[in-house]
Design a protein around this nucleic acid. Structure first.
Lengths: 204, 204
DNA sequence: ATAAAAATCGACACGGTGTAGACTTTTTCT
DNA sequence: AGAAAAAGTCTACACCGTGTCGATTTTTAT
């Protein structure tokens, strides 16, 4: 329909580059799943996205930047979801829904989350991204523990320190389980939930 | 002293290569600490060991093989130590000594252990090494839990599954803490011990 | 002393990364 | 619509680290 003016007052223009950028990230995610980080080459990603290597470097300055952007995209999604979570008064209920949501997260984004964890050491920016994510989780766990009656504070047997340990337990358990199968993930979740409940003093 | 015969009946011959091999591994460990795995190059290691790159490839077929050998050397040390551990009947005591020993292990070999964990995914052989090590720990934890009265079995709330989760909790907590300082490691240990005790039902 | 085995080296080929500069397409402004 | 600017694309190249090869030297055993 020639002569058609798209609505004004709103940025209609989606740069061609925006589409490409998404294509690059999508390809990166797919290749990460198929070949893993080391085996995946910039050339592969470029080819998958339908451009040449040189063109890719117009968008990202390095292989690390590409995967950092991918992690950022995913992690942003996590934050959004976690912000949208309804709060409950009952700690038992809070724990159950938190674990359930976490299972969903890992089912959906397990690959990128594992990659983020793996690269946290080597790629500083990814490390920060993941640290921040972990801090959100730790804060949430701390809150639940305190509401369940665990003494607030940072001593080894108080809420804050315990929350950190529980967070790492969940991270690592899910990291391994999500590589195996959804069933294993479900089992790991049940176990972590159980230990969390015990630690909160909600189970004998 | 010409004509000197080294004592017989005992393998006096330590191949020159044996010394070199040790030198290579030692250098590798030092460089790993200084620059990290990615930044460390085969050339660096060779230079540090006082030989050329070409000569290094006489000993090891690849960079991965070098670090795999280093991990193997360290892990063997762990196994030895863990075999030599006295058993106690009192679960509380068993947990305390286990955590204490683990702190020592991480203080001494934290760097290599972290490297092993990082490379578990990419280098299959290191993965197996570390898995086996983890299995030893899990078995030990399981035994203690059962002796403390936790029901044996693999269901999510039974000894085996809980031991696995606790193992990951300890691994991850120590992984992070050992990067910071001995104090942090000590604190992390106290927290993990506390959660372990609660999970075993030895604390209200 | 000598022959076999062990160890060493320098040169080379390969593959992946990242850069440079020329060129084309798209967007923006009037 | 049309020109200038901005955005996007490509090919070629330089660099670096890995791993291989064959020739050579050193060590070891007899």
């Amino acid at each position: 329909m020639p002569g058609h003016h798209p609505a004004r007052g709103r940025r209609t223009t989606e740069r061609k580059g925006d589409v490409r950028e998404r294509a690059i990230l999508d390809t990166c995610e797919a290749l990460l799943a198929r070949k893993g980080y080391d085996a995946m080459t910039i050339g592969d990603v470029a080819q998958g996205a339908g451009i040449s290597r040189g063109a890719l470097y117009f968008y990202f300055g390095s292989k690390q930047e590409v995967v950092t952007a991918l992690v950022a995209r995913t992690v942003e999604h996590l934050w959004e979801r976690s912000r949208a979570t309804a709060q409950t008064d009952d700690p038992r209920q809070a724990i159950a829904t938190a674990m359930h949501r976490t299972v969903e997260l890992w089912n959906e984004h397990g690959l990128v989350m594992r990659t983020a964890i793996d690269l946290s050491l080597t790629v500083a920016e990814i490390g920060e991204l993941w640290n921040h994510t972990a801090d959100l989780f730790i804060a949430a766990i701390t809150a639940v523990l305190e509401r369940a009656g665990v003494q607030a504070g940072t001593a080894p047997d108080q809420a804050s320190a315990m929350a950190r340990a529980l967070c790492w337990m969940i991270e690592r358990s899910f990291y391994h389980a999500s590589q195996e199968s959804r069933e294993k993930l479900q089992e790991a979740s049940a176990t972590c939930e159980h230990i969390w409940l015990i630690s909160a003093g909600l189970i004998t």
